[in-house]
């Protein structure tokens, strides 16, 4: 069975999450082809037999209406059973379009594949659904970080794709982008998430110590580290809601999740319980977060963070 993977690029650079999507594609398919869209795109794919390339100055950053059309053209040539794309913020948007375009069922933002069933957190990860989905065509978008890139070293044959994209497909478009700094990594795409909550006490505390720990961890590990927050911290205005982890925020599954001054209400747990390792620092030994954490320190954050940051600098 064949899989067609959409490879997301921003300013030509292939997203790590798309390599994971290729890795996932190998779990369900014996033939993996790809379509890469953007401007000046990198040609560094592995584990793909054929890669269609569509270059367009108007798609330096991805737009879902025209890209859906490009994928339709690639699919006309390939007739793949699975159309696969990573559930990045953009991928989640594009996936919905593809489902409508191809009249196909969709499973978006799932995290596992076991015994022929897809595993996805429902009801904010309070339960896990094991799902069978089939058909002539199926749209699948695995959550970033849930699957690994493939070991398959096959280099693709690159094929230029020509598509006529009508201007109307670009009618809705960004007129201004205030780019965040490259260090401001989205919580859903980070290897490590450092989150602070109500227990941090004030905006000053949060804004000083959470980024400080984030930077120290980034230096010490070389990994992608993002800072997150509980709803209480967001509602108090300490940090932008794009950093909120939880039921009405983002759902994350990093390698390591630090919960600092976060009691761990069920709504917060919903957003982070699939993290590989959870480390909680809270002065209240009864805080629900300790029921979920793998490691905990029962202490005031003030007694832990400065020393931790200092010691990480020595690593």
């Amino acid at each position: 069975m064949k899989a067609l993977v959409f490879v997301e690029t921003v300013k030509g650079k292939v997203k790590e999450a798309s390599l994971e999507a290729i890795g996932f594609a190998h779990m369900v398919s014996d033939e993996v082809v790809a379509v890469v869209v953007g401007k000046g795109v990198e040609k560094n794919l592995k584990g793909v037999k054929r890669a269609y390339v569509y270059e367009d100055d108007r798609l330096e950053i991805p737009l879902s209406a025209p890209i859906a059309k490009v994928i339709e053209e690639a699919q006309k040539k390939e007739g793949a059973k699975y159309v696969i794309l990573s559930a990045t913020p953009f991928g989640k948007e594009l996936g919905g379009r593809l489902a409508a375009l191809f009249n196909a069922p969709i499973l978006d933002d799932f995290t596992g594949y076991e015994d022929g069933l897809f595993v996805k957190g429902f009801y904010s990860n309070k339960v896990f659904a094991h799902i069978k989905v089939d058909g002539d065509m199926v749209v699948l978008s695995p959550r970033p970080k849930a699957f690994k890139p493939t070991d398959d070293q096959t280099e693709p044959e690159y094929v230029d794709l020509s598509v006529e994209l009508d201007d109307s497909l670009f009618a809705a478009h960004p007129v201004e982008i205030k780019e965040k700094s490259p260090e401001d990594i989205d919580v859903t795409e980070a290897d490590i998430v450092v989150s602070g909550g109500r227990g941090m006490g004030s905006a000053e505390n949060y804004q000083k110590w959470i980024p400080a720990l984030k930077d120290a961890l980034a230096k010490a590990t070389g990994m992608k580290v993002a800072y997150g927050a509980s709803r209480a911290a967001v509602d108090a205005g300490w940090v932008d809601h794009s950093h909120q982890v939880g039921q009405t925020g983002k759902t994350v599954s990093p390698l390591v999740y630090f919960a600092i001054g976060i009691s761990g209400a069920i709504q917060h747990q919903a957003g982070m319980r699939t993290s590989k390792t959870i480390i909680a620092i809270n002065k209240d030994p009864e805080a629900p977060i300790f029921g979920l954490a793998d490691y905990g320190i029962v202490a005031k954050w003030e007694d832990v963070l400065p020393e931790l940051i200092e010691k990480l600098k020595g690593e």
């Binding site: 919905g96 379009r97 969709i106």
Partner: peptide, 8 residues
């Protein structure tokens, strides 16, 4: 947990 409805 689907994000697909609006784009669909």
């Amino acid at each position: 947990y689907t994000y697909a409805l609006a784009p669909y």
